[in-house]
Structure formats: structure tokens, C-alpha cells
């Protein structure tokens, strides 16, 4: 019963006779104060490490090159007027979407393979398949760079050994783009695998048994049981990976430095080149903020969908 309804039927009391109610309010207030104080470290961290840098980046993006005058959104206008930047938008989208799709598909396939292995063997395979994800990407990308090296590629050596032609992995625009995607997929697929494996393990076996009794095929089981049950984790994983992949820097930086002819530049590498190396910090900030509205929009709808499905399940 709500406190208000009891108050409605209770006889009126003089103010002095209502200390418990005030005490309750004070207590509630005290509890919120305590709660606030307890969350203050987290709020400080978010304010200091997220809100402040983001606000400062937005502020920087509105300044002129010398950072002496406010120019509003002109940096964005300048960027959209630039052919190289328009190519960067296309390349970033191509890179992020292709890489995330491949990571999701490979991760899903690996998770299924692992899920159907006996528990004992599964641990070993799971550990091995996670290795790419735990190696710092700058380091592993260096290893890939040696394999793709323009002059001494070990992959080309193997190709030549079986009579194949040398491939200009980093020198030709499309091969360079494919190389960057290969490394990103190699690095990121284990993350999808482990998330999907956890989701698969949470699907009740009884659902598959019931479906099998009803004569459902394996594909129908996947289509009507597995995918719906994994929908939330797939949405969140894809969203998370999309954001991280759009912000990827180290792979492009180490592997191609954006070349040849800027045809492998993505937002982060181009922002660093324009902002820090070329000394145009406001324009670099504008580059790095460019995808923020779109990603925020996507994130809002994906998370809204997840919440709706959670409510329906509850």
C-alpha cells in the first residue's frame, strides 16, 4: 500500500505529532546523499575522462587553425569540401562494416564449432582461439606487417613457392584495404566468438529438444531458436564492435600509414595526421568527431531495441 493512501484515511495530526514521517524523509534524503557520495568517484571519473575530453574536443573543433577564433562549424564544412576526407568517410564505412560483418560471421561460426566440442577439448581450443585478441594489436600488426612487407613478404614467399604470383599487399589500394581488414578481423573475431559462445551456452537445451520432436531441421533450429535467443547479445556486440572499429587507429597506422595515396585512411588515422602531425588540432578534432552523431544515433536505436526485448521477455 502506498504511504499516501494511508495518510488519506488517517486522522489529521498536529505537525509536532508527525516526526516519524519527517525522519523518514530525512532518512531518504540521507540515503540519496550517501548514494551520491558513493557514486561520486565514478561520476568524477566519467566527468574527468569522458565528459571533459569530449566537451573539449567539441570546443576545439569550433576553433580556427591557430586556435585564436571561434569559427562554428566551418571545420566540418571544410572537411566535407575535401576530396580526401570524403574518401576517408567512404573508406571508414567500408572498413568498419566489412570488418564487423566478417568478425560476426566468423565469430558465430567459431562459437558454434566450439559449442559442439566436448568440454575437455573445448577449453584448449577456446584458449588458443582467444590468443589474437589478447596480444596488443600494435604488436600483432607489426607481425602482420612483416608478412605483408612490400619487398620481403613471407606470404608472397609461400605463394611463389607453390608457383603463385607475388601480391602487392600494401602497395596496391585494394590489396592494402583488404590487408587492413584481414588484420582487424583476425584480431577482433575472437571477441565475437567468446560473446556468442556465452550466449549459446545460455540457450536452454529443452528448446532444441522440443523443436527436434516437432521435426525441426538444424537450419530451422538456428533460425527460430538460436538467433532469436541471441538477438540481444548480437546487437550489443555488433554495436560495440562497430564503434571500436570506426575508431580503429593502430592497425592502419602500423600497416599502411594510410597509404597508398590515403586510400586506407580511416577517421582516427586521418585525425592524427591532420590534427597532430600537420599541426591543425581543430580540424583533427573535427575529423574525430565526425562519426559521433551517426554512431550515437545507431547506439540509441540498438539499445532501445535491446531494452524492448528485455521488457517483452520479462
Amino acid at each position: 500500500m502506498a504511504p499516501d493512501s494511508s495518510a488519506a484515511v488517517a486522522p489529521a495530526r498536529p505537525p509536532a505529532a508527525r516526526p516519524p514521517s519527517n525522519a523518514m524523509k530525512r532518512f531518504a534524503r540521507r540515503r540519496s546523499t550517501i548514494a551520491f557520495l558513493m557514486t561520486l568517484p565514478l561520476i568524477s571519473v566519467i566527468a574527468g575522462l569522458v565528459a571533459w575530453p569530449a566537451s573539449y574536443a567539441i570546443y576545439l573543433a569550433t576553433l580556427n587553425r591557430r586556435m585564436t577564433a571561434f569559427i562554428g562549424l566551418e571545420n566540418f564544412d571544410i572537411l566535407l569540401d575535401n576530396e580526401t576526407f570524403r574518401a576517408v568517410i567512404w573508406q571508414s564505412c567500408f572498413f568498419a562494416i566489412t570488418a564487423v560483418l566478417l568478425k560476426a560471421l566468423i565469430g558465430f561460426w567459431l562459437a558454434h564449432m566450439l559449442h559442439h566440442l566436448p568440454t575437455k577439448g573445448q577449453r584448449k581450443w577456446r584458449g588458443m582461439l582467444l590468443v589474437p585478441w589478447v596480444i596488443p594489436p600494435a604488436l600483432s600488426t607489426l607481425g602482420w606487417w612483416w608478412m605483408f612487407d612490400p619487398s620481403y613478404s613471407s606470404i608472397n614467399y609461400l605463394l611463389n613457392a607453390i608457383g603463385g604470383p607475388s601480391i602487392p599487399w600494401l602497395g596496391s589500394p585494394w590489396w592494402a584495404r583488404i590487408s587492413v581488414i584481414i588484420v582487424n578481423v583476425w584480431y577482433g573475431a575472437p571477441f565475437f566468438m567468446i560473446m556468442y559462445l556465452a550466449a549459446l551456452k545460455s540457450v536452454p537445451e529443452q528448446l532444441y529438444e522440443a523443436a527436434a520432436i516437432d521435426g525441426a531441421s538444424g537450419w530451422q533450429g538456428l533460425r527460430h531458436i538460436t538467433l532469436p535467443m541471441m538477438q540481444n547479445i548480437i546487437s550489443i556486440t555488433v554495436l560495440f564492435s562497430l564503434i571500436v572499429t570506426f575508431a580503429n587507429y593502430d592497425i592502419v597506422r602500423v600497416l599502411t600509414n594510410g597509404g597508398p595515396r590515403d586510400l586506407t585512411q580511416v577517421f582516427a588515422s586521418y585525425a592524427f595526421q591532420v590534427g597532430v602531425l600537420s599541426g591543425n588540432i581543430p580540424r583533427g578534432a573535427a575529423v574525430s568527431l565526425f562519426m559521433f552523431p551517426l554512431l550515437a544515433f545507431i547506439a540509441y536505436f540498438v539499445l532501445k531495441g535491446v531494452n524492448q526485448r528485455n521488457k517483452e521477455m520479462a
Binding site: P150, S151, G171, T256, G259
Partner: peptide, 21 residues
């Protein structure tokens, strides 16, 4: 020039010389 010079970094030319190529 070698076909891959478009992707060379500052060490690639050194390697080209040192390798004798």
C-alpha cells in the same frame, strides 16, 4: 622502380640497399 615503392616507409630503401638488390 620496384612495383611496391608506393608503400615503402623510411626503412624500405635502406633494406633495398643492404640486401644488395
Amino acid at each position: 622502380l620496384p612495383s611496391d615503392v608506393w608503400a615503402w616507409d623510411d626503412a624500405s630503401n635502406n633494406r633495398a640497399l643492404i640486401s644488395g638488390r
